[in-house]
């Protein structure tokens, strides 16, 4: 565990609490992409298959169960409690391509051609693009509630912070997972435009608005 990894995980945790806070306080899931949320459930279920056979490290196990549980809970909230506020008409990014593309990448790049390794690789590629339906929804509405942008930022910062963590581990421990590193870099590039607008507008106290 190093400071980058810890900050990344805390950022990931924070993103979930910000999202739940947004839904509860505004009593609405407007501006949140159901499709991205569903992809995250798929990401965690395929990434954390090792919950079934261990080894169960306390910190990792608690976090894994929390990420699976909270993402399923958000889907439940969006599907039932706050269904009328969901922008179904605008939230129509074709996730089939993201899932199919990630699966092909997983078949091509994996540590071993076994079910769990292919699923692990699939989860990393899918996570790298899972925010796209959310960013697409943002693009279509052209603006976002500030709290929603904090959520997206914290979620993106998690993987961005894992990059110095990987560099640190490569140098200090001689350990490197190329699939995770490449997928993490792609994920951070996917977020680049959003980060730019977040830093130049939201941090300066302005509303998140995209140029027309």
């Amino acid at each position: 565990m190093n400071i980058f990894r810890l900050l990344g995980d805390l950022s990931h945790l924070a993103s979930i609490f910000i999202l739940l806070h947004k839904i509860r306080t505004t009593k609405s899931c407007a501006g949140i992409s159901f499709r991205s949320q569903a992809l995250y459930v798929l990401v965690y279920l395929t990434r954390y298959l090792d919950l079934l056979w261990g080894p169960w490290l306390l910190y990792n196990t608690v976090m894994k169960l929390f990420f699976i549980g909270s993402s399923v809970y958000v889907l439940y909230l969006m599907k039932f409690d706050y269904k009328p506020s969901h922008d179904m008409g605008l939230d129509n990014f074709k996730v089939e391509y993201l899932i199919g593309g990630s699966f092909v990448m997983a078949l091509l790049f994996n540590l071993a051609f076994t079910f769990d390794e292919v699923m692990w690789s699939f989860s990393l590629w899918l996570e790298s693009v899972a925010i796209l339906p959310q960013l697409f929804l943002l693009q279509r509405t052209g603006e976002a509630e500030t709290i929603t942008t904090h959520y997206i930022f914290a979620l993106g910062a998690y993987r961005a912070l894992y990059i110095p963590n990987w560099l640190y581990r490569w140098v200090m421990e001689g350990r490197v997972e190329f699939i995770a590193v490449f997928a993490g870099i792609i994920q951070t590039i996917v977020y680049a435009d959003f980060f730019y607008v977040y830093f130049t507008k939201v941090i300066q106290g302005q509303k998140f608005e995209l140029p027309a």
Partner: peptide, 10 residues
């Protein structure tokens, strides 16, 4: 060695 590495990240 060919021993499988434990996935210790999230």
């Amino acid at each position: 060695n060919g021993e499988k590495k434990i996935k210790d990240e999230l």
